[in-house]
C-alpha cells in the first residue's frame, strides 16, 4: 500500500511514470532515498511478520502524516536556502487557536479552522518579515518564533489541553472504514507541494533564490516578497499539521509537537534536499518522512527500546545523507 501511494506521487513529480523493471531500476538508482526506503521495507518485512500488513502500513502512513505535512512546508524553506525551526511550535499554537476559538469561544468550526490556518500563516509572515526586512538570519528569526509560538500556545490554553470539536476530531478517523484521513491529507498536501514547486512562479523563484540569491535578485525576482511567501507557506502547512495532530489526540495540547521541527528537517534532508539551497522535491520529502515512520514502526514491532530507537534514527539520518553526497560526488 505504502509503495502504491509512493508511485502515484512520484508519477506526479516526473513525467516518466515507472513502467517496466528497467525504468524502475533507474528510478531507484537515481534516487538514493527511495532505494533506502525499499530496502528498509524489505528488511522490516523479513524481520517482523506483522510489518507487511495493510493495517500496519496504514499505521505507518498515519504516523508519517504529521511529520510529512510539516516537512512539505519546510521543503519550501530549505529549497530557498533558509531554515524553519518554528514549525513544531506553530503547529501546536495553531491547534490551540482552533480548539480555543471553537470550544471556549463557541465560534463556528469553519471559522475556527480559518483562524488556525491564519495563525500559522501569520507566524510565517512574521518570521519572513524578520528575515527579509530585519535581515535576521533565518535560524535566529525562526528560533525566536519557536519560543514565541510555544509560549502563546501555553498562554492561550493556560497550559492545559483543550478539547477539539467533534467534527475536527473526525479527521483522525478513517474514510470508508479503512483509509485514514491523515494519510489523505498528507497525500493532498504532497501534491500541492509538488505543484507549487514545479509549476508556480513562487516555486521556481525558490529554486533560484536558493541556488543564487544575488543572481535571482538581479534577474528581477522580488526576493524579499518571495521570502514572505515561503515562510507563510511553511507556517500554513504547520497549522494544517497541527490540526491533523490534534484530531489524532482528540485535543489541542500546547505541549504537542515539541521537537517535530527536527524530524521535519531530517525528512527533507533525507529526501535529497540540500541545506545550502536550490535542491529538493516534494516526492523526496515524502520518502524521507516515510523512512522515519517505517523505522519507528518497525523498531517498535521488533521491541527495540525507545532509547535505542533514537540512536538508530540518528545513524540512519547520517547514513542517508552520507550515501547521497557520495553518490553525487561519484
Amino acid at each position: 500500500m505504502a509503495t502504491d501511494t509512493l508511485k502515484t506521487s512520484n508519477a506526479h513529480q516526473s513525467p516518466k511514470a515507472p513502467g517496466g523493471s528497467a525504468v524502475l531500476r533507474r528510478v531507484l538508482l537515481d534516487n538514493g532515498a527511495l532505494s533506502a526506503l525499499v530496502v528498509l521495507v524489505g528488511v522490516m518485512s523479513l524481520m517482523s511478520g506483522d510489518f507487511l500488513t495493510t493495517q500496519n502500513l496504514l499505521n505507518v502512513g498515519v504516523q508519517a502524516a504529521v511529520t510529512a505535512i510539516l516537512a512539505f512546508g519546510v521543503t519550501f524553506v530549505i529549497v530557498s536556502a533558509g531554515i524553519d525551526l518554528s514549525v513544531g511550535s506553530v503547529a501546536a499554537l495553531s491547534a490551540t487557536v482552533l480548539a480555543w476559538s471553537a470550544t471556549s469561544q463557541g465560534l463556528p468550526v469553519w471559522l475556527a479552522v480559518i483562524l488556525a490556518v491564519g495563525t500559522g500563516i501569520l507566524c510565517g509572515l512574521v518570521s519572513g518579515a524578520l528575515i527579509s526586512f530585519g535581515k535576521l538570519p533565518p535560524f535566529i528569526a525562526t528560533l525566536a518564533m519557536l519560543s514565541i509560538g510555544r509560549g502563546l500556545a501555553l498562554v492561550i490554553s493556560q497550559g492545559s489541553p483543550i478539547e477539539i470539536p467533534e467534527s475536527v476530531a473526525r479527521l483522525g478517523d478513517t474514510l470508508g472504514g479503512w483509509l485514514p484521513v491523515p494519510v489523505i491529507v498528507m497525500i493532498a498536501m504532497g501534491l500541492i507541494t509538488g505543484a507549487v514547486l514545479a509549476r508556480t512562479y513562487s516555486g521556481r523563484a525558490m529554486y533560484a533564490i536558493g541556488g543564487n540569491e544575488e543572481a535571482a535578485r538581479l534577474s528581477g525576482i522580488r526576493v524579499k516578497r518571495q521570502k514572505l511567501v515561503i515562510y507563510a507557506l511553511s507556517g500554513g502547512f504547520a497549522a494544517i499539521a497541527g490540526i491533523v495532530l490534534a484530531s489524532r489526540l482528540a485535543s489541542a495540547q500546547p505541549q504537542a509537537a515539541v521537537g517535530y521541527e527536527l524530524d521535519a528537517i531530517a525528512a527533507v534532508v533525507i529526501g535529497g534536499a540540500s541545506l545550502s539551497g536550490g535542491v529538493g522535491k516534494a516526492s523526496g520529502t515524502l520518502i524521507g518522512a516515510l523512512i522515519l515512520a517505517v523505522l519507528r514502526n518497525g523498531l517498535n514491532l521488533l521491541s527495540v527500546s525507545a532509547f535505542w530507537q533514537q540512536v538508530v534514527i540518528g545513524v540512519v539520518i547520517a547514513l542517508a545523507v552520507l550515501v547521497d553526497s557520495l553518490r553525487r560526488r561519484a
Binding site: R204, G211, N212, A215, I221, V279
Partner: peptide, 24 residues
C-alpha cells in the same frame, strides 16, 4: 558565476529567470 547564474540550475531554468514573471 556569483551574480549572473544559478550555477546548479539547468540551462533552460537560467534562460527563463528574467521572463519568469511574464510567463506566469
Amino acid at each position: 558565476k556569483g551574480q549572473g547564474l544559478v550555477l546548479d540550475a539547468s540551462v533552460h531554468e537560467n534562460l527563463g529567470l528574467v521572463t519568469l514573471r511574464r510567463a506566469t
